[in-house]
Every structure is written in C-alpha cells, then in structure tokens.
Amino acid sequence: MKTESTLEKILASGNLAVTSECGPPRGAVPDKVKEKAEMLRGYVDAVNVTDNQTAMVRMSSFAACVIIKQMGMDPILQMVTRDRNRLAMQADILGAYAHGIDTMLCLSGDHPHFGDHPQAMNVHDIDSIQFVQMVHTMREKGTFQGGDDIINPPKMFIGAAANPFADPFELRVARLAKKAKAGADFVQTQCIYNLDKFETWMKGVVDRGLHEKVHVLAGVTPMKTAGMARYMKNKVPGMDVPDEIVDRMAGVPKEKQAEEGIKICVESIQRLKDVEGVSGFHIMAIEWEQKVPEIVKKAGLYPRPEIA
C-alpha cells in the first residue's frame, strides 16, 4: 500500500469502490455537513468534499473534511488550482494529512466566470496535472514542489478528474495517460449519460493498459427532472446527455420523473459494472444525497466490504 487510504484498500482488494460527494454549506454550519455525510454512512467507501464548487464560496473542503473525519468516515479532500497557489495548496495538504485525511482529488476548478465572485483573480499557478505531480512528489520523494525536504511527508492517495465527453475526443485517453504519468492513483469521471461513448473511451484506456495504472471510477448523477436533463444537455460545458435520456425523462409524468432518474442511474451502473477497466462508481447526487443509499442498494453495491 502506498497510503493508509480506505479507498486504496478497497480498490486493491478488487472490490468495486463506491464514492459519493458532499457539497459543503454556504455558511458556517457544521451540522449541515454532518447531516449530509450521515446519509452516506455505510453506503460509500469515501466522501468527496467539493472545493468552492462552481466557483461559489462555501465552507472550505479542508474544514468539512475534518468534520467528516471526526465522524469516523473517510473524506476525499477536493482541491482546485483556481483559488490557491502552490504554497497554499501544499500547506493545506500538510494540514489535512495532520488531521488524518489521506485521500484527495486534484482539479483545476470551474472558472470564476460561473460563480458568485466573477471579479476574483483566478490563480492557476499550476494546472491539475502539475498538481497531481506535486502531491505525488510530496509522497514519493518527501519533498515540496520547491525541492526542500518535508518533515513527515503526507502520503496522499491521489485522485484526478477525467472527462471522456469533452473535446477533442481523440485527446481524452491521452490526457488520462498524462494524469497517470503524473502519478494519479485514481480518476473519477464526469457524469456518464452517453454510455456508448464512455465505452469507446474506456476501450481506448484498456488498450493502452492505463486501467492497470490508474483506477477509473465511473461518475453517475441521477436526474431529478426532465428540466434538469435538458439543462445538463444544453448548458453544462463538457456534458454529453443523449436525446434518448432527455426523452425518457420527459416521457414520464412529472411526479414520476425523480423515480425514473434513479432508475436510469441504477441501470447505468449495472451496465458499467461489466465494462472492462471500471473499478468503481462515483455517485454525484447533487443536493440529493438522501437518494444515494437507494441507488447503492438497487445497483447491488451494498453492503460495502469491510476492510481492516
């Protein structure tokens, strides 16, 4: 084992891993974090804690991770390069690790243009791949990015994002290869609705043997309404929602749409379980955390394995 990470152990055991996410509150409300995390207890192996998601100010991922850690659960510290330079990032990684947080996700982050502080300077001192490289160097060489030795280097299990649906498609496998080369241990993908396209991408990943270097957790998000399906199709950059999904959501009465959304999500997981190279699932139930247990159960991913 490279780290103490529960996620690493689950993945190493050959079990399909399950992660979900918790968006911290837009205020100093620790109970909100606890409430959301509690819904996931026992149903997921680790909980991603987003970092100023969609470029809106929220409780820091680090602080919310500590709360979740204190609940005896396993948080995944998400961190974006948008808001911090390399000094601040490394400082927070030391701090997080000091609190027992051993798994993280390295991202570039949404542009401030989308958020509540479009006036803010976006930092982007390093990019997501250099970020992975930096955390990897901290763990493997025990040095900071600047070269100095670290006292008790943080051993982070390193995650990154992969979006098989963004353009140019022909670069998407190559980009995963770059992340693997930089030292990523796992990736969580963008929400998958176009399963055919995902499978094409995954085949490219397997052909290059990348799935043996980096665990791929397939991202899924249940749709609440047909409106949400349409919005994700038309408005969210880098999202691929086929018409048949939108039509299927729109084809059922409004009060049944949520149920249909869960059904689609479960069916997707069932199909993706058989795709070579898929090591687990990342269930992003946006402001709908209470549905995660149902999805996990229906998808046959429950109970979660006990790993010592």
Binding site: H124, D127, A161, A166, D167, P168
Partner: peptide
Amino acid sequence: CSKRLLNGPCGGSTNG
C-alpha cells in the same frame, strides 16, 4: 487558455 493550463485541455472544451 482561461485557466492558463500548460497541460490542457480541461473538461470544459466543447466544439473547439
């Protein structure tokens, strides 16, 4: 690049 990525593109690149 809006995010100054030296190893791009990010996941938001759509139709160029």
